[in-house]
Nucleic acid binder design. Structure first.
Lengths: 253, 253
DNA sequence: GGGGTTGGTGACCCGCGGGTCACTTATCCG
DNA sequence: CGGATAAGTGACCCGCGGGTCACCAACCCC
C-alpha cells in the first residue's frame, strides 16, 4: 500500500463540512470549498466520501446521536432526583438543564442550521426522531412526577409533554441565535418556574374552575367548534409523526 | 395600448408562486414551473416581475402583513376583555386564539415554509420582525394584566413575553404540520390553562419558595424592567432583535 | 383590412456547482 | 534506485435553472 492516505482526511473533511454548513447552510456549502478548507482538493474529497449527501448525512446523524445520548441521560437523571425539598428538586433539575443547554450553546451553529431545516429540510426526519424521543421521555418523567405528587394529577400527558418539549425547543431556538453567551443558570431557573407555576396570579387561579388541563366530563349539550372546515384542501407532504395534537388522550371537551 | 395585458397575470403568478413555494420551498420553486402553473410562459413572467426574488418578496411581505394585522387586532382585544369572571376571561381569550390559529391552519403550507426559514433564511428578517412585534404586544398585555391582578406581580416581563410568544410559536409549528384539522378550541383552552397555571401540583407549589419567576418582590427602590416599552421604536431590520435572553430585566438568579 | 404597438413565446445563453478522470506525486518494496 | 501502486490534483464535463431576446400574435385605431 504505497502512499498511505491521510488518516485524518475524513475527520478534517467532516470538520470543514461542519464549519461550512454553519456558515452557509446545506445548499450553500460547496464541495470545492469544503475540500479547500480541509486542505485538500475536490478530487480527494471523493476519495473519502461518495458525495456531498453522504458527508452531510454522516455529519448530522453523528451529531444528533450525541445530542440524544446527552438528553437521554439528563432526563433519566431528572427522574432519579427524589426525596428532597421542592427548592432542592428545582435546583437539581435546573442543573440538568444547564448541562444540556451548555452543550447546545457550544454547538449552537450546527443546531441553528438543523432547526431551520433549510434547503428542503433533508434532515427533518432526524430532528423529528429526536424530538419524538425527547417528548416520549418527557411523558415518562411527567407520569412519574404525578405519581410522586410533583405534578398535578389532571395533566393531559401528551399535551404536557409537548408543552415541555416546546419550552426546550423554544429556548434552544433562542439561545442558539444569541451572539454572546447568556447566563444559563438564572435563565433556566426562571423558565423552570414559569413552566411549573404558570403566569397567573393566585387570585386568578383561585377564581378559575378546578379543571386546569384537559378533561371535564364533556358538556352534554352544545357542540362547540361546529366543524368549520369539513376537511381541508392540500395537506400534501404528510410527515404524520405522532403529534400531541392528534389523538390527544383527553376527548374534545 | 393595443393588446392589453392580462389584468390577472400578477395575481395568477403570485398564487402559482405560493403553491410552488408550499410544495417545493424557495430554491425548489422554478420560475418556469411557476409560469406554467399560472398558465403562461417564462417570458411572460418577466413582464410582470423583475425576477424570482422580487416575486417572493412581494408574496411573503404581503402575507406577513396580513398575519400581523390579524394578531395585532387579536392582542388588542385580549386587553379589552375585562370585568368578567376568570372562566369567562379565559373563554374569551381562547376565542381570540381560535381565530388566529384558524388563519394559521388555513395558511399552514406557507407558514410552515416561512418558519423553516429554509434556503438561507432569506425571509428571516420578516419573520423576526413579526415575532418581535408580537412579543412586544404580549409584553404590553402582560403589564396590563398585572395591573389588573390577572398575572402574578413578580413576572419578568421580557422572559414571560418570550414564554408566551414561544408557546404560540410552538403551537403554530405543530399545527402547521398536521395532516388533518385539529380541534382547535379544546386544544387552545388546554394550552391556555397550562400557560396560566403551570404543571406543578398544589403541593409542590406551596412547598416551593415564594419566588416563582424572576426575583424577590422587587426592592422598592429599583426600577423594574428598565424601560420595557414606553413606546417601542420601529426596530427596522431585525438583525439585533431584542431578545429576552439578552439584557434580561432582572439580574442573575 | 392594414399598420403600429404592446403582450407573449420559448429557444437560447451562461454561470454555477456536483461529479469525473487522465495525469502527477508520494510512498513502499525489492 | 526504479518500478509498482495507490493517494491526490484540478481541468473538464454536464445538467440545471435564472434570465434574455428575436420573433410571433393579439389588439386598437384609422
Amino acid at each position: 500500500m504505497p502512499r498511505p492516505s491521510d488518516p485524518l482526511a475524513r475527520t478534517k473533511l467532516l470538520a470543514a463540512a461542519e464549519a461550512e454548513f454553519v456558515e452557509h447552510g446545506l445548499d450553500g456549502s460547496k464541495v470545492e470549498q469544503i475540500a479547500k478548507r480541509a486542505g485538500m482538493s475536490k478530487g480527494a474529497f471523493y476519495l473519502h466520501f461518495a458525495g456531498k449527501a453522504q458527508l452531510f448525512r454522516e455529519l448530522v446523524e453523528g451529531f444528533v446521536a450525541r445530542l440524544a445520548a446527552l438528553t437521554d441521560a439528563s432526563l433519566h437523571r431528572y427522574e432519579a432526583h427524589d426525596a428532597c425539598s421542592a427548592e432542592e428538586l428545582i435546583d437539581r433539575w435546573v442543573s440538568e438543564d444547564v448541562a444540556v443547554f451548555e452543550f447546545i450553546w457550544q454547538n449552537r451553529g450546527l443546531i441553528r442550521r438543523l432547526l431551520e431545516g433549510g434547503s428542503g429540510a433533508r434532515f427533518r426526519y432526524l430532528v423529528d426522531e429526536f424530538l419524538e424521543r425527547f417528548s416520549s421521555k418527557s411523558r415518562h418523567v411527567l407520569q412519574q412526577g404525578v405519581l410522586r405528587g410533583i405534578f398535578r394529577e389532571d395533566l393531559d400527558f401528551d399535551l404536557a409533554a409537548s408543552f415541555i418539549a416546546g419550552a426546550y425547543d423554544r429556548l434552544a431556538r433562542d439561545i442558539v441565535r444569541q451572539s454572546t453567551r447568556p447566563d444559563l443558570r438564572p435563565l433556566l431557573e426562571d423558565v423552570q418556574r414559569l413552566v411549573l407555576f404558570g403566569l397567573a396570579s393566585a387570585q386568578l387561579r383561585e377564581s378559575a374552575s378546578p379543571r386546569p388541563s384537559g378533561a371535564e366530563p364533556a358538556p352534554p349539550s352544545g357542540v362547540r367548534a361546529p366543524r368549520p372546515l369539513p376537511d381541508d384542501p392540500v395537506s400534501v407532504l404528510a410527515s404524520q409523526l405522532r403529534s400531541p395534537l392528534q389523538g390527544r388522550s383527553r376527548g374534545l371537551r
